[in-house]
Amino acid sequence: MSAPAQDAAPPLPAGQKAAPKLKQPYPFWLGGVAATIAASITHPLDLTKVRLQASGDKRMIESLRKTVRTAGARGLFDGISGTWMRQMSYSLCRFWAYDESKKLIGAGPNAPAWKLAAAGSMAGGIAGLVGNPGEIVMVRLQGDFAKPPEKRFNYKNCFDALFRMVREEGFSSLGRGLTPNVFRAILMNASQLASYDFFKAELLKTQYFEDNIYCHFTASFAAGTVATTVCSPADVLKSRIMNASGPGSNSTMQVIRNSLKNEGPMFMFKGWLPAWTRLQPTTILIFLTFEQLKNVVDWTRGTTKA
């Protein structure tokens, strides 16, 4: 008689089902990669938004034409290395921190909106702090060629910008605009990440949507509109402070007073259209790419079809 198999699991009692196997967490860097891919595609729109907010450019199309006229088509990708640095610091951190925050406060798949917003706010505060240097580098690289030649920073790339900032302006320069940037990051993650999860969960409760690309597109479209409106005031302040130089130019209250005096309260929504035009496809691309990357990870683990 052959010996019984050593690894055979004992039979379950009648009527009892095996406990579902816990799904492995996704790699922490997945969100950063998705955001980097999306931001690379939409970089010309982000470049235009920053130049509208921080320079004398008045209209989106006019600004795009000016860039092509003065720097050629390649000028639409000025400062792309700063965008990559920003996404692989800020965005990588925010996706990771959002997942960890949801676990911490017990925000499951059908969690109420306030729990998702709380998790997003926590993630935004952490990511805004970690990603501030990359944010400054991105804004300066994008806004440089919109300035008169004598006022340009003339950084070669994101690493040159980082090293020169520390050498020429001191280590404290990496904290320039930290307050509005962290505030904006809190607003962005509470509105974008949280609203995407909320809209996705609500859509899946209807009979018209399944967990597929159509659901992801609709949820991300709604999330992009919400995030643009909520974040516009802090986004304008962040761009103006980070793109400034000189003593006293990093004072948030001073920038607010000067902007209110010269432009009125609507300065807070200056560049809303290019911001929406940029953030909307970026939001859609981020979440569609993120969901597809998760599918690829599941496929490599043998848990689902690609």
Rank of each mutant, 00 (worst) to 15 (best):
P4Y: 11
A5Y: 05
Q6S: 15
D7A: 07
A8N: 02
A8I: 11
A8H: 07
A18N: 00
A19E: 15
A19N: 04
P20H: 09
L22V: 10
Q24I: 07
P25I: 15
W29T: 09
G32T: 11
G32N: 10
G32W: 11
A35F: 14
A35H: 05
T42F: 08
P44Y: 03
L47R: 02
L47C: 03
T48Q: 06
K49H: 01
K49R: 02
S55W: 07
D57R: 12
K58D: 08
R59H: 09
E62G: 07
E62Q: 14
R69W: 08
A71F: 15
A71G: 04
A71T: 07
R74P: 07
F77A: 06
D78E: 06
T83S: 13
Q87S: 10
M88F: 09
M88T: 14
S89I: 10
Y90C: 04
Y90S: 01
S91C: 14
S91G: 01
S91Q: 11
R94H: 12
K102A: 11
G106R: 12
G108L: 08
A111E: 03
W114M: 05
K115W: 11
K115V: 04
L116V: 03
A117R: 04
M122H: 01
A123P: 00
I126R: 02
G131S: 08
N132M: 09
G134R: 02
I136N: 15
V139L: 09
D144C: 03
F145G: 00
K151N: 04
K151S: 05
Y155K: 02
K156Q: 14
N157W: 15
C158R: 02
C158N: 06
D160N: 14
L162H: 03
R164D: 04
M165I: 06
V166D: 00
V166A: 13
R167G: 07
R167E: 13
E168T: 07
S172W: 08
S173W: 05
G175M: 14
T179P: 00
T179S: 06
N181V: 07
F183T: 13
F183L: 13
R184P: 04
S191T: 11
K200Q: 09
E202F: 01
L203E: 03
L204M: 08
Q207V: 11
Q207N: 03
E210I: 09
H216L: 07
H216D: 15
A219P: 05
A222P: 01
A222S: 09
T225S: 05
T225H: 13
A227E: 15
A227T: 15
T228V: 11
V230A: 14
P233I: 03
A234M: 13
A234N: 02
D235T: 13
V236F: 10
V236Y: 06
L237S: 02
S239K: 03
R240N: 08
I241Q: 02
P247Q: 06
S249M: 14
S249H: 06
S251A: 12
Q254S: 04
Q254F: 06
S259V: 12
S259D: 13
K261I: 09
K261D: 05
M268G: 03
K270G: 01
G271M: 04
T277Q: 02
P281T: 12
T282Y: 15
T282E: 13
T283D: 08
T283P: 00
T283M: 12
I286C: 10
E291W: 05
L293G: 06
L293Q: 04
K294Y: 08
N295V: 00
T300E: 07
G302L: 11
G302F: 10
T304N: 09
T304G: 05
K305F: 05
